[in-house]
Amino acid sequence: MQSSNIHEPELTPSALRMNTHHNPNAVIELSEVRLQYGSGTLALDNTNLALAQGDFVSLVGPSGCGKSTILKLVAGLLKPTSGVVMVGSKEVSPAGKKHPKHSNMRVGLAFQNPTMLPWLSVLDNVMVPLKIVTPYREYYRSKKHAEYRDRAEDLLAQVGLKGFAQKKPWQLSGGMLQRASLCRALIHEPQILLLDEPFGALDQFTREELWSILQNLWLKNKPTVLLVTHDLRESAYLANRICVMTSRPGRILEDRSVGFARPRTIDMSYAPEFSELIQELRSTITHANVEVIPS
């Protein structure tokens, strides 16, 4: 379950090399990716990462190590300086295109900041992707969206927002908005879910509750998830695989699988083997001479 190469000074584990060349099972694959912002900061260098269909991978590491950069590359919001980013057997950003077009995969995205549209109700905010994403938007236009409304209300109920559908975003607390933001990321049944510290601004109790909600939602449809976080407990609770990153230029230092049985519970997160895993992750990160926010 756990590898034992924690204290090795070697920065590029050979296990990763196997993933480098077009893994046929990979839904998301970064090979030899390098990203430099302008002519300045080198955010990523020689980064390799592959996610299989239905995988739940968490990227952890100190802030500024390029976690979010990887996420943006996968989302097609950034273009690598060199290297290849494949999503669903298509290259995300063919060179020369100014705005990288995304592949035919449906992608959901949620940030730490819930970014709701203040003039729409919570329900309408959640339904926004259905107005935009290609297979749905035609139906949405043809006024067939009663069933979409039901779906959105059902999803809101699942995250504990039953009865808040008609409220405006500013009438909700931060935790509630983050729940709604999660619904918005999932309403169009994405094959890929990208989460950038979605629970970073929340209190401990809300965060733990949302972990369990996210786990349940994931177990239902099994989208491929890439979760960026600096909370080690969070990543150990949620992910199948944890990738630890070094900072500047970002590189994946360690890639380990997490074998705890599903569905995981908060009680499990206080079990000795769970704490041991977190302890090991922490020491990996501190040994790489970087600081981390303790969980």
Binding site: K72, A75, H102, V107, F111, I132
Partner: peptide
């Protein structure tokens, strides 16, 4: 907000 734009761009807007 750039993040809001990102959410929309990822959806293919």
């Amino acid at each position: 907000e750039p993040e809001l734009e990102d959410v929309f761009k990822v959806l293919g807007a």
